[in-house]
């Protein structure tokens, strides 16, 4: 564990809490892509199957359980409890466009051809692109609530901080996993346009509105 890993994990946790609180406090999930949330739930479930097979640390187990449970809770709030507020007309990105290529790529490029390893690799690839339905929804409506912007910023920072963690681990632990690194890089790049708008607009007290 290094400082980048820890802050990355905390950014991830913060993002999840921001989203749940936003939905709960406003009793609304408008502006939130239910599809991205379903994809994240699939990511956590397929990645954290190792909860049943190996124990790493109390921290590791606790965080994995929090991610799985909170993502399930988010999906429940969007599709059941506050479903009347869900922007289904704008949330039109096709999930299979992300899921199917991720499955194919995981079957082709992975460390070992075992069920657990392919599912883990699939989760890494799917996570890299799982935010696309959310970014698509924001681009369709042309704006995002400030709280949604904070959520996206925290969620985007997390994999960026992991990139620094991987550089650290390469130098100090001689650890290198190209699958995580390349996917994490792609994931972070997808947020760049949003990061720019966040810094130039939201941090200056304005709402996130896309340029026409």
């Amino acid at each position: 564990m290094n400082i980048f890993r820890l802050t990355g994990d905390l950014a991830h946790l913060t993002a999840i809490i921001i989203l749940l609180l936003k939905i709960w406090k406003t009793r609304s999930c408008s502006g939130i892509s239910g599809k991205s949330q379903i994809l994240f739930t699939v990511v956590y479930i397929t990645r954290y199957l190792d909860l049943f097979t190996n124990y790493i640390s109390a921290y590791n187990t606790l965080m994995k359980i929090i991610f799985v449970v909170s993502s399930l809770a988010t999906v429940f709030l969007i599709y059941f409890k506050f479903k009347a507020t869900y922007d289904r007309n704008h949330d039109t990105f096709r999930m299979e466009f992300l899921i199917i290529p991720s499955i194919i790529l995981a079957l082709l490029i992975r460390h070992e051809f075992t069920v657990m390893e392919v599912l883990w690799t699939f989760s890494i690839y799917l996570e890299a692109v799982a935010i696309l339905p959310q970014l698509f929804l924001v681009s369709k409506t042309g704006e995002a609530e400030t709280i949604t912007s904070h959520y996206l910023f925290a969620l985007g920072s997390y994999r960026g901080l992991y990139l620094l963690n991987w550089i650290w681990r390469y130098y100090f632990e001689n650890f290198l996993d190209w699958i995580s690194i390349v996917a994490g890089f792609v994931q972070t790049v997808l947020y760049c346009d949003f990061f720019y708008l966040y810094v130039t607009r939201v941090l200056h007290g304005r709402k996130l509105r896309l340029p026409a």
Binding site: D9, I56, Y162, D177
Partner: peptide
């Protein structure tokens, strides 16, 4: 590096 090494990450 081996396949199982990255699994301590989240």
């Amino acid at each position: 590096q081996h396949a199982t090494t990255g699994k301590d990450e989240l």
